[in-house]
Design a protein around this nucleic acid. Structure first.
Lengths: 131, 131
DNA sequence: CCAATTACCTATTGACTTAGTAGGTAATTA
DNA sequence: TAATTACCTACTAAGTCAATAGGTAATTGG
């Protein structure tokens, strides 16, 4: 359900949050500390930047920085970027594809309920809790 | 997280539970009612039989039958048969692979907690609730 | 100004999973 | 004994995951 990519994204965010938030943190250093391939992290960090969760600058002393305080991030917004879907099944959730059985389906409400429980749990969990 | 296979397994169990439980229900009829390929269902129903959730007999008037009453089934035991893992991440849950970062990992407890919430929800939900 | 540093970009690979199909054999009963 | 049904093995095409490779563009310290 939550892939390596998602866990790396969270690990990366925690790593940056733990450092002095005023400076930009180079991906090279994060990769070294976390024991994750820098090349692989590049693809992940891009999603975080595109979504506005991080800002990055190039060049010497460049790197990445949080755009808000750690207690303002919930881990749902982080994880959903790297996962195709955080929903339990395809017929519920954000990218729900139309379910042809919807009218006769006896299980949809169960999936929706479970989905909601998971989402609420992840949304309640703040980045600051991991520091 | 929960694949078509899992949803089909549940749909199949509900279908059988809805019929007269004394008779054996032919897969052909279930497939027709549910609008699912019979061939595909064969692979799914095998897991249910192997796990003892259903019993099947061959020949004319053969088919499948529940081995206990619908309120004695929870949907966790049904879904886990078709899914590689119902865990949120690979480092927690039933088939947990060793996590090398375990001692330094700040996120494991979160995954474990979420995992537990999902498991408890599914275990509480009985097959009889879908009839 | 230039060379090192760093983010940022595109493409590719191999392994695995998923969803589904195909073509059978074995058992049971009307 | 013929129809019916479960049961079995193998295969395929598409998609995802994890990771690598080889660059270009931007920024800054010396």
């Amino acid at each position: 359900m939550i892939s390596t990519k998602g866990r790396y994204a969270l690990a990366l965010m925690i790593d940056i949050a733990e450092q002095d938030t005023k400076n930009y943190i180079a991906l090279k250093d994060i990769a070294k500390r976390q024991g994750i391939s820098k090349k692989y992290l590049e693809a992940i960090v891009k999603k975080l930047v595109d979504a506005g969760l991080l800002e990055g600058i190039s060049g010497k002393n460049g790197g990445y920085r949080l755009t808000k305080k750690p207690n303002k991030y919930n881990i749902y917004e982080i994880l959903k970027l790297t996962e195709i879907s955080l929903s339990t099944v395809s017929c519920v959730g954000e990218k729900a594809t139309a379910c042809e059985r919807k009218n006769t389906c006896k299980t949809c409400s169960t999936w929706a309920e479970l989905n909601d429980i998971i989402k609420k749990y992840l949304q309640k969990k703040k980045l600051s809790e991991f520091i």
